[in-house]
Amino acid sequence: MQVFPFVVVAWILGVGLYGVVTSRHLVHQIICLIVVQSSTYVLLLGVGYVTGAVAPYYFDVPNHTPAVDPVVQACALTDVVVEAAVTALLLSFAIQAYKRFGTLDPQELAELKG
């Protein structure tokens, strides 16, 4: 349990990268990129966890109860929303690539010139 979450993070990262490298369709590649990004969210939250602590909201627990780290949660929160918009931008690039070159295979797209 001491290192298991970080091993899972490495697994998700590796699987996502494998998908990106061996993909034959741009949309499949973008979805694997989403998986790679999700591994960073798990890593952020795993680093800040404190055993036996509550969520850092003092609305219904008394003040100064031990809580998990709120800074990494703030990072991960804005991270999730912003990466979705960037993914939408990538998908619009994929649409334009298809309009212009007629193919969505990244290994064929790599050979096009001009």
């Binding site: 001491q2 970080f6 795993g46 680093v47 100064h64 998990v68 780290d69 800074v71």
Partner: peptide, 16 residues
């Protein structure tokens, strides 16, 4: 790393 669940850093508890 200090292991899962042993967050040592000063920033989080200071803000809390």
């Amino acid at each position: 790393l200090p292991g899962f669940g042993n967050y040592p850093g000063p920033y989080g508890p200071a803000i809390l």
